[in-house]
Amino acid sequence: MYQRILVPTDGSEITAKAVASAISLAKLSGASLLTISVKEPFPYSAISEMQPVPPQEFYDAQERIANDRVKAVLEAASAAGVACEGSTVEALHPWEAILDLAKDKGCDLIVMASHGRRGMAALLIGSETSRVLTHSPLPVLVIK
């Protein structure tokens, strides 16, 4: 069925459901799992003296948070006996980083969480999941 499943993580409660589903599916199909946490780039402004956080402090915090998110998925997969590999990447558009990793690693399924925004919030804010759905050549399983 599936051989390599990618599950992005942002550390949210709904993402934990997607991770659990991806682990179960990987275990059932004998697939390996990959996980990714996307870090935000430093928000440079025209007036650099007005930055609330120094760039290195920002990068260090982003790296720590992303690594913690990936570590949680790696530990959950390991506890279930599923092989898992994790990575972090900095990207302006997380959906692009997710699709790039899926392509580079030869994934055949992406499992993502739906954050359940509806109405104007969904229209204005958008969703990384809907962008992945729109642009992915691979099947995408959306967990609510």
Results as ranks from 00 to 15, higher is better:
20 A>T: 13
20 A>C: 08
21 S>E: 14
22 A>P: 05
22 A>Q: 06
22 A>V: 11
23 I>Y: 09
23 I>S: 10
24 S>W: 07
24 S>L: 14
24 S>K: 13
25 L>K: 09
26 A>M: 08
28 L>G: 08
30 G>D: 02
31 A>F: 09
31 A>P: 04
32 S>W: 04
32 S>G: 14
33 L>I: 09
33 L>K: 00
34 L>N: 03
34 L>T: 00
35 T>C: 13
36 I>G: 06
37 S>L: 00
38 V>W: 07
38 V>C: 09
40 E>L: 14
41 P>A: 12
41 P>I: 05
42 F>A: 06
42 F>D: 08
43 P>M: 10
44 Y>H: 08
46 A>S: 13
47 I>E: 06
48 S>T: 11
48 S>P: 01
49 E>G: 12
50 M>P: 00
50 M>S: 10
51 Q>R: 12
55 P>K: 15
56 Q>H: 12
57 E>Y: 12
58 F>P: 07
59 Y>Q: 13
60 D>T: 03
60 D>C: 00
61 A>D: 08
61 A>W: 12
63 E>T: 11
63 E>I: 07
64 R>F: 12
64 R>E: 15
64 R>G: 02
66 A>E: 02
66 A>G: 10
70 V>H: 02
70 V>Y: 05
70 V>E: 00
70 V>W: 08
71 K>S: 10
71 K>N: 12
72 A>R: 14
72 A>M: 05
72 A>E: 11
77 A>H: 09
77 A>Y: 01
77 A>F: 03
77 A>T: 09
79 A>C: 02
79 A>T: 04
80 A>I: 10
80 A>D: 06
81 G>E: 13
81 G>A: 09
81 G>T: 01
82 V>W: 04
82 V>D: 01
84 C>S: 13
85 E>S: 11
85 E>G: 03
86 G>V: 03
86 G>Q: 09
87 S>Y: 01
88 T>F: 11
88 T>N: 08
89 V>C: 04
89 V>I: 10
89 V>W: 02
90 E>S: 13
90 E>F: 04
90 E>N: 04
92 L>Q: 14
92 L>H: 10
92 L>D: 10
92 L>Y: 10
93 H>F: 13
93 H>N: 12
94 P>H: 10
95 W>I: 03
97 A>S: 10
98 I>D: 06
100 D>N: 14
100 D>M: 08
101 L>D: 00
103 K>P: 01
103 K>L: 06
103 K>T: 11
104 D>Q: 15
104 D>F: 03
104 D>C: 02
105 K>G: 01
105 K>F: 05
106 G>S: 04
107 C>E: 00
107 C>L: 04
109 L>T: 00
110 I>L: 09
110 I>M: 08
111 V>Y: 02
111 V>Q: 01
112 M>R: 07
113 A>Y: 03
114 S>C: 03
114 S>I: 08
115 H>S: 08
116 G>W: 00
116 G>N: 06
116 G>A: 04
117 R>V: 02
117 R>E: 11
118 R>M: 06
118 R>N: 06
121 A>M: 15
123 L>E: 08
124 L>Y: 03
124 L>G: 00
124 L>Q: 01
125 I>Q: 15
126 G>K: 05
127 S>A: 05
128 E>M: 02
128 E>N: 15
128 E>W: 00
129 T>P: 05
129 T>A: 11
130 S>V: 12
131 R>V: 01
